[in-house]
Design a binder for these strands. Sequence first.
DNA 1: GAGTTTGAAACT
DNA 2: CAGTTTCAAACTC
Length: 740
Amino acid sequence: MDRSPEPSRIAQKSSSSSPTVQESPFFNYASNLSPIKSSKGAVQYAQRSMDTTLPIPPPVFTSPRMDLQRGNSLLGRDEKFESGFNVYKQGDTLTNVVRIPSFEKEIQSDTHSGSVDEYLTEPMGLEDSMNSADIGFTATKETITKVVSLDGNTENQAITLTDQAAENLPSGSVDWRDNKKVKENFPEFMSEKDESDINEDLLSGALNCEQHATQGSTLHHHGIRRHLQFEAALAYEETTSYNGNNLCSLTHDNANVRSPASLTNLKSLVSFQYETEASSNQQAVNLFQSIPQQFSSYPFELLTSTQNCGNRVMSNPKPRGIGLHLNSIGISDVYASERLNNDQPGSQAITETSSTSHSTDHVNPLGHPLHLALIEQKTTPCDGSMYASQDTDKVEELNQLSPKRRRKRSTYMVEGCKRCNCKRSKCLKLYCECFAAGVYCVDSCACENCYNKPEFEDTVLDTRQQIESRNPLAFAPKVVKHADSPVNVTEEGNWSTPTSARHKRGCNCKKSKCLKKYCECYQAKVGCSDGCRCEGCQNSFGIKAVAETIYKRAEKWDSFTNEKMDALKSGNADQVSRTWEPLVDITNITPLPHPSSGAWTPSSSSTRDNSKVSGAQLYPGSRFQSSAPSSFHWNCSPDSLIEQLCENKTSHSLSSNNSFYDLIDDDTPQMLKENSTPNRAVKASSPNQKRDSPPQFPSQGLTSDSPRGLRGGRRFILQSMPSFPPLTPYTKYKDRYNLD
DNA sequence: GAGTTTGAAACT
DNA sequence: CAGTTTCAAACTC
């Protein structure tokens, strides 16, 4: 039985060539793709409007493409907004639109020439197509207003901003070609600086605008300013005459600006430039290189995708919280490796890839404001192949090669990219990798009865919409980069690891133990997390297995302690000791870090499910991994421990240090008073709940009166840390992440 | 390359 | 939301 909608029927529903605005309840990134034919015949899903409605949404830059027709054609302002798409097609002309954070603006970048300076002084530079030499700011205002009017939820707010901004606008239009006039009308923007400084202003302003975004009365002013800046920047990007040195220097000049969003913007600008100029302008590459260095504190990702095989391209602007696309993980690793292994991070890769790049797709700020994903779409002829970046094995292998050989292998990778093999889904379901990835199938696909082709554009779009209606994130990247996970924010600062990525929904593996590519987590080379429902997880990239180990050990330990307590109460301690002799080692190993709280929770029913613990916490290299009390390392025997707990709290012979009793005294006194079982005492210090804030390492005194056991758990953890038991799962990650 | 296994997607 | 079916990729032989 074929449950799929009949494509032809779907097509009829959307026969209109003018797509309507699609309101999506969530971020629509990959899902907002609509196929577009470029002037060069390339087919790809163009980016639709992103209906992000947050006050300061992550900046989304859409689809600066190499195949943009360079010309003077420009959609009329009104035409532009007849569509809900960010990338519009008008005949064969593509128009890029960039949505600017905070103002939900869409900026139409057109294909025209001229440097930034030219853009400023000749802002439109499009007289030919606009039939107006004096559009200037008035046109910009219109743009803002109109765009805002399409912005759904943010309409009111945005309109307010726009109106406020408009109040600050000089009446009448300004001829941007007239520097003097512009300076008069926009003294702050133009300042008194030389024209040569305009570029600098552009970027510095862009960097700072985010800081101003919340400054009340000045907000609208800077908003307009930023709008202009980005508009200029986009034009800048589209130009062919560009001063790479200048921009590069700007990057350095503004290196101290740490506004993430601004940074994203900046990188976006840079990448825009790179994407358009990379093959011919090494300066752009250099510029790229400079950014990770300058902003090394931010987890940039360079997502180099080779999907663009055979004229099919897809890229996903990623919403907040959404990071790596599954298809891009591998390349991201490449970049990460480059950064780690090369003093000139990314330079080689960028240089090389740029040498073969004819077109690139757009920059994707990874949902998190600190993130920026730069997706490079290779267009090395590949007969429509795609997903080369998905083959992370090859990517890693490639990364091991010398630059020269790597280039060669890169081509091989592209040539080896996959195709779908759908038989019954018509390539219109997520079963189809092509469809799921937002790309059209190609001739080399082995699919049958395929409708995922440009000629069925409407069908594809409608099907996508249907799927989105069921699951707004259906086309979202499957792998999420947790930029703010403890892995990346450790005070030690050295645990940042690409494995902080996690599968969006988590896997549900039953038999594969997450050790085969059946497992999406494993396939994406990310660890399993609390979102996974897998059973018997042994994912080598994640450590849910550790959670299970924790549970088993905790259960063991719990049984032991309970029995021991009973024995103590009944005076049969010796018997119990003999019974549990095989478990004696448990006092040394005992629980691996409890994933959820920094302390372990033995065997309570609530922990029965503790395999579903926070991935970040369980995560190799995560702070919890190291800070968790997996190293209780009690040097005393279970007997002495329990006896101490039960009989003499003041005896501090528990271990070489007094941490455990410090913990008990300070943090879980009530628990111990009420119930002397060590089991519960531990529980008290280990609320089984996710921690949503970085752990506070115990620099404070030992006399905290905080009722929260968690704090005590942490303290105890810290003091116990050096004595980590040689448990296999942990050791594995310890070695990997140099945990000590 | 055919058949099997697996788990996500789709459906009920 | 849980259970079932469908599907195509991954895997095995």
